[in-house]
Simulated scan of single mutants.
Amino acid sequence: MSGFSEAAREAKCWLPRSRRSPAEARRRLERLLDGAVDGERFIDTGLLLVTELVTNAVLHATPRDNRVLLELSVDPVRLRIEVHDARADGVPEVRAAGRDDESGRGLMLVKSLSEKWGCCPRAGIGKIVWCEIAPSPAAAEGAA
């Protein structure tokens, strides 16, 4: 596994195809934001969206015996989350879940809470699903 850069602005790690991977992704994001100036401005939305993207990759887009690559970067104006998986077929579908559905809201949350998001092919095999998050307005006001 790769670690964090000395500037604590970028992080990259491989995660197993496991239901425990979203929790590990949250820990990695918390560590990155703890080391970044004003990183707390991204924490709430960042934790939610990294969980959604990693969960989708683990449950729906990563074949057995493959791993997920998580890449995080933060600067003063945005947090970028990238999740690389080994499944190249299809762009993730954003759909409205029914009231009684127990799943299916993840990408709708990503679309609603991020400034930008998308999906692109990955060199070699698979795809990258990514999002960019602006600082929380409440957190930004508190820092001023």
Rank of each mutant, 00 (worst) to 15 (best):
V50R: 08
A143L: 10
S103Y: 08
E52Q: 12
L70A: 00
P76S: 06
V83E: 02
E10L: 09
P92G: 06
T62M: 03
V94W: 06
P63A: 06
R41M: 10
L107A: 08
L29G: 02
R9Y: 07
I133K: 02
E132T: 15
L107M: 15
A143T: 13
E102G: 15
W117E: 00
V83H: 03
G46C: 06
G106P: 04
D89N: 09
R27D: 14
S136P: 08
S114F: 00
D75N: 15
V74Y: 03
S112M: 10
A7D: 15
L107Q: 09
L72F: 03
F4N: 03
V74P: 00
D38W: 09
A97K: 15
G46Q: 02
R19W: 09
L109Y: 13
A23E: 13
A139P: 05
V54G: 00
L47I: 11
L59D: 06
G46I: 04
E115Q: 10
L72K: 03
G3T: 07
G98E: 15
L70R: 01
E115M: 05
L47P: 03
V68K: 00
E102D: 13
E6T: 11
L29S: 04
R19E: 12
G39P: 02
P92H: 06
D100S: 11
I81W: 04
G35I: 05
A139Y: 05
A143K: 11
S2P: 11
S136F: 05
V94F: 07
D75L: 04
I125H: 10
K111W: 02
D100W: 07
P135E: 01
R9E: 14
E93S: 12
E10G: 07
C119D: 13
D38T: 06
K12Q: 10
E52W: 07
V77N: 11
S21P: 00
S18D: 15
T45E: 10
L59V: 05
P63M: 02
S103V: 10
R27M: 14
